[in-house]
Design a protein around this nucleic acid. Structure first.
Lengths: 232, 232
DNA sequence: GTCTATATTGTGATAGAC
DNA sequence: GTCTATCACAATATAGAC
């Protein structure tokens, strides 16, 4: 016969907003340590491949504590996903939304992106896997991030970028290109080398130092490459 | 006390080379069906997220048969990885290694790649995840594929491509660019949209048909974009 | 809040009948 | 070669002491 599945549980500290000072005995630090550990493990093992035990070990706490702070592995995974995405996307939007010339946007975007990813090389592969496995989370996240439905935010930015492109075309300084293709090209050129790093490692014989050199060179040449492609 | 772990097992049909005709009762078809099913499941769930049961269901056979034909999940995963890679890479090498002008290479590469990936959209995300989780398999595979250590094969192709680029530079028809950067840029522009498709779906509001249209347009514009970037 | 111990399932793998 | 039944263990999750 059917059993009533798990439905309700004890109250969790995650729910209580920061009410002044930490009440009595609550480090507020443990939850952070767990999240940090989960972040590291999920990124290097992938969400499905990660083990709660490994996260607990990395955090220096017991497995049970993971469930005390976060109800389940799934919720922990979602928390990590949101943190990764929240760290990565806003700077991008800030640059692309700022009122500066298009060529300057490209230069800043490349610099920002390559610097960020060089410090977190697992992020691209992690995000790609995660988004493919949980397409729903992407929408939830962006909504939580921007505060409005995605369509609106993205549509607005797309329109602004397209206007900037069209102005350049009218001025004779740019070839016509659709804003989405523009963005996809730019992001692809920045992100892909990190996602495909293991392939490059063997196909090009790039060890750690050589990869860094490859990226450093890219940081200089990529803006020129991209802007040159847009020349009329 | 310690237990002796599993070490040896029954002989498997996979080991016997094709000796003339199928001996007595061996469809030779079942193994293929299992491999097809594994292919489908591994690609949509990821290797770690895939379940042997789901593969068996998809193949229309029992779980035990998976272990009869392939010793373990790990071996099955490796077989799938090799099949995916073997389908994807040789055409690429053929195009890039053929004695045709550089701009023609670019055009053919883009057309080939976008057509292939449009038919197998999960491949990029799968390969990226798999290569990051099993960097070792990449080397094994390429060795098995080309028959020689990777360094040699890749080095040779890299040199050939670089020579072609340098010739163009000398003739005044090309900007200088390192062969690895050339290849990474080209591959990134082709592959990334498929890997990041879920993100584009929400960020750009692209449903299935719109994505196809996006790719179709890309097939025309990407070669121009790329070649334009190389103009002096 | 944090731990130890335990429950409960999920999952890869094997044995053995047919 | 293919199946049913089952094992062994890994992994998520919970109970309860401190």
């Amino acid at each position: 016969m059917a059993l009533t599945k798990r439905s309700n549980r004890m109250p969790k500290p995650s729910d209580q907003p920061p009410s002044g000072q930490p009440p009595a005995a609550h480090d507020g630090d443990t939850e952070q340590r767990i999240l940090d550990a989960a972040h590291a493990v999920f990124l290097r093992r992938g969400t499905a491949g990660a083990r709660m035990q490994e996260i607990a070990d990395e955090a220096g706490v017991n497995k049970a504590l993971l469930h005390y702070y976060f109800r389940s592995k799934d919720r922990l995974a979602e928390a990590v996903f949101q943190r990764v995405a929240r760290t990565l996307f806003p700077p991008v939007l800030a640059v692309m939304g700022s009122p500066i010339p298009l060529d300057e946007k490209v230069r800043r975007f490349v610099a920002l992106e390559l610097d960020t990813l060089a410090r977190s090389p697992f992020v691209p592969a992690y995000l790609i896997a995660e988004m493919n496995q949980h397409p729903d989370r992407v929408g939830q996240f962006i909504h939580a991030l921007v505060g409005v439905p995605i369509d609106a935010a993205a549509g607005q930015m797309r329109a602004a970028l397209q206007a900037q492109i069209d102005a350049g075309v009218a001025a004779g300084t740019l070839r016509p290109i659709a804003a989405p293709q523009f963005m996809v090209n730019l992001i692809a050129l920045c992100v892909f080398p990190f996602a495909a790093r293991p392939l490059m490692a063997v196909a090009l014989g790039l060890d750690g130092a050589a990869f860094d050199a490859f990226i450093a060179r890219r940081k200089v040449e990529l803006p020129e490459f991209f802007l040159n492609a847009l020349r009329p």
